[in-house]
């Protein structure tokens, strides 16, 4: 608290000077408390004792600093390829043994965490904005405790009876959020994004304050957490609801069960009657959403250019 900035090297030196750590383990423990990780430095080899015989000339630099040369296969050596014993496409389908086909393919080793992270596609929201965006999406404009002095003075000056003290509104996460995740066919490509998004909400709003349900096509048809489908229940009045859905836009042409505009409007209406706001987070651009729907619900594009400021402006309009 001697300065307002982040913890820096000076804090580490101050603690070492004040507490005089006596060994490397204690120094490292103090560093960890401050968020530093000490690098291990290999001590230099001790100088060789003087010898009567002159030292051998140093090895050529190339052998000391460069990796050993790559072994090259002798010319003409046969390259080993994996040859599948699966039946060719030209083979007739009948007569195939599906069990044999599965067994013929070696299971790929599971990628480790680092590899998975490196291979996974980038998140739909910009990672550095994700936390703020999620916080903004889950927040509601509620009367705060600070008094709205301007309104108060205006009412008094106008001679209006003061029925209640006007309060300035403030954004709060205190109500929690109901998170509805669409697992209809059109959202399958975004399954991993949905999991990451759910984790973002749990971190930002608090796991205990996020009520999460899965649904297919429209929550009014039922929701589920595991296997059994239940009737969707609206949250407590005022709690914001966020549906992560493509609104049926991404469903294959033969997916006839996609929800209608009317169903979504019915959902928004039920929530509005209870003072809750419905926000739909959609991976499709706003222009593709039917105008009747886009006008009535808070529609946020789940995409890189979306910023917290845009979302806040949108939600301010819907929260009034």
């Amino acid at each position: 608290m001697k300065h307002g900035g982040d913890i820096w090297l000076g804090d580490l030196l101050s603690s070492w000077q004040a507490l005089a750590p006596g060994d490397e383990a204690t120094r490292a423990a103090m560093a960890r408390l401050l968020g530093f990780e000490l690098a291990t430095v290999q001590p230099e080899a001790p100088a060789a004792a003087p010898s009567a015989t002159p030292p051998a000339p140093p090895a050529p630099e190339t052998t000391a600093r460069h990796p050993p040369p790559v072994e090259v296969s002798p010319a003409g050596a046969k390259q080993q390829y994996f040859v599948s014993d699966l039946p060719r496409a030209s083979e007739p389908l009948y007569g195939r043994d599906p069990q044999r086909e599965w067994q013929a393919v070696e299971a790929l080793a599971r990628a480790d965490t680092a590899t998975r992270a490196a291979m996974s596609p980038p998140e739909l929201f910009r990672p550095e904005w994700a936390r703020t965006l999620v916080t903004t999406l889950a927040a509601r404009l509620q009367p705060g405790r600070a008094i709205d002095e301007v309104r108060l003075v205006r009412d008094l000056a106008g001679g209006h009876p003061l029925e209640r003290i006007p309060r300035l509104p403030r954004w709060t996460l205190g109500l929690g959020v109901q998170l509805l995740i669409d697992v209809a066919p059109g959202m399958e490509p975004f399954a991993a994004d949905q999991i990451a998004l759910s984790e973002h909400f749990a971190e930002a709003v608090g796991e205990a304050h996020v009520e999460e349900w899965l649904f297919a096509d429209c929550p009014l048809r039922g929701v589920f957490a595991e296997a059994d489908t239940e009737v969707w229940q609206p949250p407590q009045p005022g709690v914001p609801v966020i549906a992560v859905s493509d609104l049926g836009l991404g469903a294959p042409a033969d997916h006839l069960a996609r929800a209608s505009v009317q169903e979504w409007l019915e959902l928004a209406g039920q929530l509005a009657a209870r003072g809750s706001r419905l926000t739909v987070l959609s991976p499709w651009p706003r222009a593709r959403v039917p105008a009747a729907l886009a006008e009535r619900i808070a529609l946020v594009e789940w995409d890189r250019p979306t910023s917290a400021a845009q979302v806040r402006r949108l939600l301010e309009r819907h929260d009034g």
């Binding site: 608290m1 001697k2 804090d11 101050s14 603690s15 004040a18």
Partner: peptide, 8 residues
């Protein structure tokens, strides 16, 4: 002790 030493 580290908090007291650094004022954090």
């Amino acid at each position: 002790e580290v908090a007291l030493a650094t004022g954090r």
